[in-house]
Nucleic acid binder design. Structure first.
Lengths: 228, 228
DNA sequence: CCAGATTATAAAGAAATTGTAAAGACGCAT
DNA sequence: ATGCGTCTTTACAATTTCTTTATAATCTGG
């Protein structure tokens, strides 16, 4: 249950440890950087969902890091600082920080501010629509389109198709499909499979007699073909 | 040089004056409300780009205001409060506040936080009315119109419809709908759903026998169709 | 190419799910 | 208390989906 990945840029070992433990125990992935240089490198390497940035870094001013980060990074940045001068706060916020918290902070408040920042930026909101030729599958909305028209699938048909999409290109054996879709008690009911495969093909294939998406592997099972 | 319109919901006359002068001199349009009721009414009437909300209001708890506001309002809300208990902060942020500032605050910081909030939340002219074909739903006013006539919905019917509208296009499962509308104890009462779906359709569908808006996904749940 | 095995398809009957009406229960305001 | 509107429950009808059967088509190995 990963709620998102957070990059912590802070040089104090105690703070690192505290943040790592706190964030990790609340379901976030954590990555640590102890100076500006590695922080920027890590951010560029695997862009995190949120950055916690200490302003007092050994090698470079935190504001400079923020400035460089904001040249391309659009997810939330929360600044942590031992200072609390108004000037510093304003400068950080105007350089693109989403929030500013003074050290020492209350961990509950930090977590709430992280939730708030992630929520409003609705990070990780990319719709997982998969496209295969003229077929369009939106797992989140549980919707399948062929060209422009929406295809109505029963829950069993959908379960079957979802399984195929999850293992695109691989051969799925009869027993495997039967167990996953119908349950362990139906492993020998291969006739079900034939009936439902036929129904699925009738709905998603342009020419059900010459299936492009769901191909038969005689004696073994079926395979879903996404692209050539 | 209007940088955006801000709604201030605060009952202290001094604070009102301070905010109005400060915000106005920095190029924001300001609207004042001295209690929860007028605050919500003003927000619904002319949705502002940002709301400054005092938690200590005379007529209603600020958190309740936040909750109601967030049923439809998506632009930033910054909470101002004389309290600074961690509990209060967390609660506000988790109810949908974008930021929390303790009174007395430094005006420079407030302005910076307002700039930050307006910058990151791509503020939009929020038309509180959503239209789907001949259906018109005003989440802020809790009003539903079909063509020109206002439709009277019970609170349960409204909760159901609001849920559908918020997740337009997605399949909402029976357990999900039951949990969200009736509570976790009703997950198995799918008959409720059938009865209320039927009632809703009778009210919003032109031909309840061939529903256009609320379609059945047999074995799974229902889906609200906004556009083709 | 043939024979046996496997797979495809249609269609009917069975089962499960969903739709609808209506009666009773409950709470709230008058 | 009374009436009204809403919620809850019940009974049954309508629809959809699943299961089963029958038969045709296709594949595989010799």
């Amino acid at each position: 249950m990963n709620k998102g990945n957070i990059l912590v840029i802070d040089d104090e070992p105690q703070m690192q440890k505290l943040l790592e433990i706190t964030l990790h125990s609340h379901g976030y992935g954590v990555r640590l950087a102890e100076n500006a240089r590695t922080g920027l490198a890590l951010a560029a390497d695997h862009p995190p969902d949120l950055v916690l940035l200490d302003i007092g870094l050994p090698d470079e001013d935190g504001h400079a890091v923020l400035l460089q980060l904001r040249e391309w990074y659009t997810n939330p940045v929360i600044v942590l600082s031992v200072q609390s001068s108004e000037e510093d706060i304003i400068r950080s916020l105007d350089l693109g920080a989403n929030d500013y918290l003074t050290k020492p902070f209350r961990t509950g408040e930090l977590l709430a501010r992280i939730r708030s920042a992630l929520r409003t930026a609705n990070v990780q909101d990319q719709e997982p629509i998969t496209r295969y030729g003229d077929l369009e599958i939106d797992l989140a909305a549980r919707m399948v389109k062929k060209g422009t028209e929406v295809i109505k699938l029963t829950s069993t048909e959908y379960a079957l198709l979802a399984l195929f999409v999850k293992h695109e290109g691989k051969v799925l054996t009869h027993p495997y499909l039967l167990r996953e879709v119908w349950g362990p008690g139906y492993i020998s009911q291969s006739q079900y499979l034939r009936v439902f495969i036929a129904q699925l093909r009738k709905k998603i294939e342009s020419d059900p007699n010459r299936p492009m998406y769901i191909v038969t592997e005689s004696g073994i099972g079926y395979r879903f073909i996404g692209k050539e």
